[in-house]
Amino acid sequence: MRSLTAPRRDPAPSRLSYRLQRLALTPMVRVAVRRGLPLLALLLVLAVLLGDADRRAVLTDRIADLRMQIQQRDEFMVHEIRIDGASDLVAAEIGRALALDLPVSSFDLDLEALYDGVARLDAVSRTDLRVRPGGVLEVRVVQRVPAAIWRGPTGLHLLDADGARVALLPRRADRPELPLLAGEGAERAVPEALRILDAARPIAGRIRGLTRMGERRWDVVLDNGQRILLPRADPVPALERVVALDAARDLLDRDVAAVDMRNPARPTLRLGAATALRLRNIKLTELGVD
């Protein structure tokens, strides 16, 4: 009698399933199925969805809208500009330079450009911009301090110790305490001028100002038209010599038109015209010439 139970299934895989399994175990195929296929499906879905221009437009609109909503939140808005370390005049000027109409979102602020705008102002030496929590744009400013007045071709200007322009000066009498510089190229040698003025402190009351001569050396102009011609190199020791001479012999109180120190080895005095003539007559008399 034949067995009533069905014969057991052949456990051997068919050639096809054997080959398929071997294919499935091939590393490249495995990677392709596990990574490549999902990626492909995702790309396909995206391509189909984004293939429609209207849908794309809606999507970009919604993204822009969302972005706007977040940027316009109160937490990101700047309501106030606080300017520290500037006088009212300069503060007004900075306010004009910033040119912001508040309130504005801090995402829309271009701090670099604002910084450049403030730093370009003449009266501002250093500045520091930051958006503080609470919607405050803080501008810290270090102002330039005027150290001299420069009479230039366009009028009177205030210069700081480095020679940078601070502001326009309407009248000389507005800042009588500052020394006056004149001459071509004077604004480029301000530090040297200030050193000279420092050395000339004993005769400060008589100084009218400094004149740059030939863009290379300074002349000290005194009140009654006297001049001290300083050399190009080492003007300060030369001036100190003149000051010392003045203290000892009252040089400058005499009728001297100019003290020429341009050659330090040979200081020269130019006398006033009348004095010079009288001195000449005295000499001639001494020599017996009629």
Binding site: P11, A12, P13, R15, Y18, Q21, L25
Partner: peptide
């Protein structure tokens, strides 16, 4: 075929 397939499956390697 049977035995190679089973061994490959165990090794997870072709």
């Amino acid at each position: 075929r049977t035995v190679v397939q089973a061994a490959q499956k165990a090794a997870q390697l072709r």
